[in-house]
Amino acid sequence: MIEGTYKKGVVILSNFITDNQGVKRYLVTIKVNGMEYTKVVKANTLLVNFLREELDLTGTKKGCELGDCGSCTVLLNDKPVNSCLILAIEADGMSVTTIEGVASTSNMDIIQDKFLEYGAIQCGYCSAGMILSAKALLTKNPKPTEDEVRGAISGNLCRCTGYINIIKAIMAASGQEVSN
């Protein structure tokens, strides 16, 4: 964890080095899918780029880089966030779950199983974010209503499926009956 000083609500990280062009780089330690990674990043490095470029965890997708599409959703301390709106230095000392951390080595999560069973995946580009939003919902609310499911994934845009099979898959993953 970087030691920092706080000034007017802004965290000022003291643990940096400066390159020959005067750009500061910060040492951050982020726990990703249960493993701690310590890396040197620029202040403007987005969490999504940290995951994709530094750790090669390309399961987290970039669709808009504006926080509109939800493709880059990851769990930051178990809460779903758009990782394109978070700086890597903001995540310092925190724990991140990406899609690569959802399935154990041998088994897929029940949400992933149900996504396959209900035909909830087409191009797959939104799937990682969708599954993580669903996971955050079901952790907090194991028996959501259909409206709650719709609400939980309303920030995850999908252009292929019309959402219906995704909603069914999440309802089924929560153990509730779904008409198919």
Binding site: R52, L57, T58, G59, T60, K61, K62, T98, I99, E100, V102, A103, M108, Q112, F115, L116, E117, G119, I121, G124, Y125, S127, A128, I131
Partner: peptide, 19 residues
């Protein structure tokens, strides 16, 4: 039948051009 590319897409293992 389940999609042939379903597992790689559901687990984030699939590679798109940008990856």
């Amino acid at each position: 039948k389940p999609r042939i590319d379903g597992v790689v897409k559901a687990t984030g293992a699939g590679r798109y051009c940008g990856d």
